[in-house]
Amino acid sequence: MEFLFEIVLNLIGFSVGVIIGVISYIGFKNTGSPTLFRLTIAFFAIGIGFGVLALGYIIDDAITHTGDINRGITTIGIAIQTIGYWFIAFSHTIKTFFPKSKYLRSVGVLPLFLVSFASVEHVIRAVSFILLVYGSIETMLSYLQGRKKSTLFVAVGLGLLGLGEFVSWYSFVFPESILYAISIVIKIGGLTSLGIPISRIPLQKVKFDPELKDDST
């Protein structure tokens, strides 16, 4: 039952992440904006990260029957999500500290999180937490400047994702408790909050035009 709960919640995370990623991609294809390109990578990574975790639970439930998700799959899923969080934080870093850097605006620095499994999962969760808190604070500062409600939803969403990471990290201290499930619920709440702004986008009016070129760099 607990497995089913985690599979469903991770699949919701996968769906929300991929939907926001697809919308960002449509925006990137239509405008050629590097910001939207980074958001595309970020949300596809977050969605795929949740998807990998869901897959891990499905594999164990249907094939291996060990009663616990493979540690390697967990690490890969969380690492992919961390890359997504990193790209969100990176976009805020560029906006705040390097507004004129053409290199950073166009290329993006490849995340260097490729390390061996073992107990690296804890490190990745800690990195995710820091990145999410940073992204949440920066977005909250943007909200204070512009007072847009949808920006507040995004700031709260990133904050909830950070809190979810913190709680899931804590679940290692109490492995048999409900903390992990709670962390997933908090994360889904965060992703839902992130998804609220996209409900206002009139995508039917935006035509996909492959002929538009990117001259933004």
């Binding site: 925006g27 405008t31 904006s33 920006t151 986008i201």
Partner: peptide, 24 residues
């Protein structure tokens, strides 16, 4: 007409980026 389409997309996704506290 392509410019008008681009401008519509730009305005839509500028809002989207601003929701994330970012500039397009």
């Amino acid at each position: 007409s392509s410019g008008k389409e681009f401008l519509l997309a730009y305005k839509t996704f500028r809002e989207f980026s601003e929701d994330f506290g970012l500039t397009i």
